[in-house]
């Protein structure tokens, strides 16, 4: 169960976009921005408030890779594996990060809730390939060593 304050926050967000079915995505985006994940209880709550079924809301939330029902780490690292980044060896960076952080594709968040590692299909910065982002800050022309250094730096912050 999530805290009562979560429902109050959800009410606030719903009021902002209007309690109608078409507001579903902006509402759950804002909730996810607030808590770094989408608490399942809140998805059910929002669905009821805006007049759609829970199954429908779940359908939408699982369609988009962006929504996560698991709490994410403090730093969300998105490694681009689009065509340009892939040919400039993003896979090596990704493998290094998986090893360094001890995470897997199925369990992308570290135990200490500091890092979440995700892949994305394109960040629209192909000229800077291979690229990764940490909480939406772009790090261009990465190498496995630069990625390791970045992790070290973030850990010490």
């Amino acid at each position: 169960m999530v805290d009562k304050s979560y429902y109050e926050k959800a009410d606030q967000v719903i009021a902002e976009y209007g309690a109608k079915p078409s507001s579903l995505i902006p509402i759950i985006q804002d909730i996810q921005a607030e808590y770094r994940y989408l608490p399942p209880e809140l998805l059910t709550y929002v669905a009821e408030k805006i007049g759609i079924t829970e199954a429908k809301a779940y359908s939408v939330a699982t369609f988009y890779e962006n929504f996560s029902f698991e709490p994410k780490g403090k730093y969300v690292i998105k490694v681009c594996d689009g065509t340009a980044c892939h040919v400039r060896k993003s896979t090596a960076i990704l493998e290094r990060l998986y090893a360094e952080l001890g995470v897997t594709k199925e369990k992308p968040t570290t135990e200490d809730m500091l890092f979440t590692l995700e892949t994305v299909s394109c960040l629209g910065a192909c000229g800077l390939a291979p690229v990764l982002t940490v909480n939406d800050k772009v790090y261009p022309a990465m190498t496995p060593d630069a990625a390791s250094a970045l992790i070290k730096e973030l850990r010490e912050m």
Partner: peptide, 10 residues
């Protein structure tokens, strides 16, 4: 009007 089932994932 029950809406128990729906698609999930992609």
């Amino acid at each position: 009007g029950v809406g128990v089932l729906n698609f999930a994932h992609r």
